[in-house]
Simulated scan of single mutants.
Amino acid sequence: MASDQMEAPARPAEQGQVPWAIKGELILNCNCTVFCPCVVSLGKHPPTEGYCQAWAGVRIDEGHFGDTDLSGLNVGLILEIPGLMARGNWKAAAYIDERASEAAYDGLIDIFSGKAKGTTGLFKVLVSEFLGAERAPVIFETEGKTRRLIVGRAIHGEVEPVAGADKDRDIVVTNSEYWMGPDITVATATKGRVRAFGRVWDFDGRSAEICQIDWHGPR
């Protein structure tokens, strides 16, 4: 599948001014051997391996970019961070749901590149290189407590909450200032495989997060 550079069509009068919102769920699996320290340290503590490699999936239950409906679409992401999150120099790639209209595709690229400002505006500052953006079949499934992300042959991921003393309650970091959302469910990956953009990653058994998201912009 051909890769498009993660650049939205030039809209000088609109860029960073279009109202947008996304509500749904995000799952993420990284190479940290224990629960990601970035959640509680807010990026002040380095990843357990000294650098971060991660895949993420976003399920949009309700969303819009201007007048364009984003509800029901999914997005897959690949992230590389060479050290502390706040120092930037990130690399990123995005897979946009193949069901997205042209307007929805452009809007999602603006959101996930940070150009749309708001919650994800930090991406524009921290990401120094976009590896690319592609349309793809992005499947986000929930089965019991298990979440599954399948993006063609690029990402095959499955995460589930870490069991607590009370099996009916998840272990949750609550009331945090983490950018994704205040409440992060501590999880682990039962499968975390990436084969994309020259990356071959296997993060089975490593740190994962589940987060209900309520993002918006441009402010």
Rank of each mutant, 00 (worst) to 15 (best):
D110H: 10
R169A: 13
S113R: 11
G121N: 01
V127M: 01
A163W: 04
P161M: 01
V138L: 00
E129P: 03
L149P: 00
R135Y: 10
T146I: 09
D166A: 10
K115V: 08
T146M: 03
G107K: 08
I111V: 14
A165D: 14
G118L: 07
S113V: 05
D106G: 06
K117I: 12
L131E: 11
D168P: 09
G132Y: 13
L126P: 03
V127F: 02
V151E: 00
G107D: 07
V125H: 14
R135D: 02
T119L: 05
D106N: 14
R148K: 15
R169P: 05
G114I: 10
T146S: 03
I111T: 03
V125N: 13
R147Q: 08
T146F: 02
I109C: 05
E158W: 02
T120K: 13
V151G: 02
T146G: 01
I139M: 11
V162A: 03
G121H: 05
G118K: 12
G118C: 06
R169M: 13
K124Y: 13
R135S: 08
F130E: 02
V127G: 02
L122N: 12
G132Q: 08
L149D: 00
S128I: 00
A165Y: 14
I111K: 08
L131P: 12
R153I: 12
G118D: 07
Y105I: 04
K167G: 12
A133P: 06
G152K: 04
P137W: 09
T119Y: 06
A154W: 12
A133S: 04
L122I: 15
G121L: 04
F112H: 09
E143L: 08
K124F: 14
T146V: 06
P161C: 01
I155E: 00
V159I: 13
P137Y: 02
D168N: 14
K124P: 07
D166G: 03
G144I: 00
L122A: 10
V162Y: 09
G114N: 11
I155F: 06
D110K: 11
L108R: 09
I155W: 04
I109R: 10
F123C: 08
A116L: 02
G132M: 06
F112A: 02
R135I: 03
I150P: 10
G144V: 05
L108Q: 12
R153D: 15
T142K: 14
K124L: 12
E143Y: 07
